[in-house]
Every structure is written in C-alpha cells, then in structure tokens.
C-alpha cells in the first residue's frame, strides 16, 4: 500500500468557459487531516467532487487509496465517506431513519449496524434528536448528523466539505475533537473550510484561489515561508492612515482590527516598521506606534491570493 491516501496530478476542470480547477497537484498522506482553504468559488467543492468520482475531470490523473478515479470510483465507494456542503440527507425522515438507511445502503450486518449507529449517536451528541425529522434540525445539528452518517461505515477516507459552516464555536471544538479521534483510528480526512482557526488545526493545508493551488504545507511552514512582513500600526485616524498606506508601492494590504491596523508589506524591506512609520509621518498624520508582528495564517492566505493576482 502507498502511504499516500490521495494523489492528483495536473487536475483540471472546465464548466463551459469557467476554469474551476486549474492544473492542481495534490498529495495527501494517510491518517492526517488535510485542509482546503480558499475563498468562495475557488474550486474546493469541485476538486472534492472530482476526487470522489462525482465529476469527471477535464484533464489530469487521480489516484485515491490506490484506485484510479473516476474509472474505479464504484470500487472506492465502500472505503470513503463524503459529507456534502449542502445538507443531503432526507429532510422528511427522522435522524434515526436516516442513519438506518445509510447503514442499510452500505449493507452493514444487523449487529454491526446497531453498534455503529449507537456509536455515532453517542459520539456526535444526537441522542435527544433521534426521533426528530432531519429537515427540522438546526444548521449545526444537521451537520453533526451528516458527519455521523458519513462515518457510519467506518471509511478509510473522509471528505468533508465545509462541515462546520453552521456550527457554533463550542460545538466546533467538539466536532474537531471527534475528527482527531477518527484520525487516531487511522482515518484520513480531507476538509474544506473558510475558517482560519480550523485551518490551523490541520496537519497540512492547500490554499486554493480561482482554482489554482497558491500555497501548500503545514500551518507553521506556511507562516514561516510567507513572502511578506506584518506591521501593526496604531493611530487616532486608522481609516485615513489605512487608505493612505494602501497607496504606497511597498504596502500589499492593510486591514483594521479594532483600532489597530494590520499592514502587510514587501518582505525585502530592511526595517518594515520604520518604512511604515515614515510613510505616515511624511503625510503629516498622527502615529502612536508601529511594530513588526508574527504572520498569522490569515496573512498567509491574503499574501498567497495577492501574489497570484500580481502575476496575472
């Protein structure tokens, strides 16, 4: 067996004139959580669908758990679980009936079925909801049910497409605890997200922008390898200062957090905080302080998507 769960090479997908996924290369190791981070429309869902064999790629090769996809997608079905971005269980069936159906469709035998359903109900806190129609669940409850259903047959590989978009912070923590439990049992997880805090929990990340892989690595590697410096600036006129800074050629972007500006500047400056301070005082604007900060994952994300646009 390969130690890679997923390998994709030069993966392409066109929808008519829309180039949704562009020459994507991907290597996902086993028993890891691998994250897809990217803005709306960056091709996360499309890429996941191609990896599960739901969409035919326009070009490229895919190998998932040793099966060439989409040719042998059918053989893969028993070994993967897929939680769709849009809730896709049956709203007019109860939680219990949905789980029964999924267990039956994966042909679990009677004993295993009862055991697995009991386990996921317990693990994802669905005990009080079993008799409720799935359509009437709250957004977060639906997502917990969907995760439960997609893990019923104990898949080797789990695709989760924005699994926590409607989950509150506390439940999100327990949701991720559950994911790490699965990984400890040997499951490989590919998860797409918009949330930085979730991205930070992944073992490795791929940042997608307009269908292109713009950065890849562990969160730490990405933060260290960022091609920019971060300067924090405080002033009594943050909006004016921010607007002015964005005009400067060496400034990539500026974002306000409370009263503080988080300014991303070119990495080749000798003293970034001084350059920023000079720019502000030269315009006769007030400055409280400017200092260099450690890049966060969000900065990596902004830098990566910006760099690509610069090239385009």
């Amino acid at each position: 067996m390969t130690e890679l769960a997923i390998r994709a090479q030069k993966l392409d997908k066109w929808f008519g004139k829309v180039h949704a996924v562009r020459s994507l290369d991907l290597e996902v190791p086993r028993s890891r959580i691998y994250g897809f981070l990217g803005p709306n429309g960056s091709g996360k869902t499309t890429a996941i669908r191609m990896l599960c064999g739901l969409l035919t790629p326009s070009g490229g090769d895919i190998d998932v758990l040793g099966y060439p996809i989409p040719e042998e997608a059918e053989a893969l079905r028993l070994k993967v679980g897929y939680m769709t971005q849009k809730f896709s269980l049956f709203g007019d069936l109860t939680v219990d009936e949905n789980l029964q159906f999924m267990a039956d469709i994966y042909t679990l035998d009677r004993k295993l079925k009862a055991q697995r359903i009991g386990l996921v109900i317990e693990r994802y806190g669905l005990g009080k909801l079993v008799k409720q129609r799935a359509g009437t669940l709250s957004g977060g409850q639906k997502q917990r049910l969907a995760l439960a259903a997609s893990t019923l047959h104990d898949p080797e590989l789990l695709f989760l497409d924005e699994p926590t978009s409607a989950v509150d912070p506390e439940n999100r923590r327990s949701f991720w605890e559950a994911l790490f439990d699965l990984v400890a049992e040997g499951t490989t997880i590919l998860v797409s997200t918009h949330y930085m805090d979730e991205a930070e929990r992944c073992h490795a990340l791929a940042i997608l922008d307009e269908g292109t892989l713009v950065a890849e690595g562990s969160p730490e590697e990405l933060q260290q390898g960022i091609d920019a410096s971060i300067v924090l600036v405080e002033s009594d006129q943050p909006r004016r200062v921010g607007k002015m800074l964005e005009q400067q050629p060496f400034v990539h972007s500026s974002a306000q957090v409370g009263n503080v500006l988080r300014v991303m500047v070119a990495s080749d400056l000798e003293s970034p905080e001084k350059a920023v301070a000079e720019a502000i005082t030269n315009q006769g604007l007030h400055l409280d302080y400017s200092r260099v900060a450690k890049p966060a994952l969000e900065d990596v994300f902004v830098a990566a998507t910006r760099a690509k646009k610069g090239k385009a």
Partner: peptide, 14 residues
C-alpha cells in the same frame, strides 16, 4: 433538486 442525489451516488448503490 434537494441535493440528496449527491449523497446517493457516493454510496455503493448501483
């Protein structure tokens, strides 16, 4: 339309 199909076709049902 309801999105159930995306789930159904990822299951082993032929």
């Amino acid at each position: 339309e309801r999105g159930n199909l995306e789930l159904l076709i990822t299951t082993p049902v032929r």
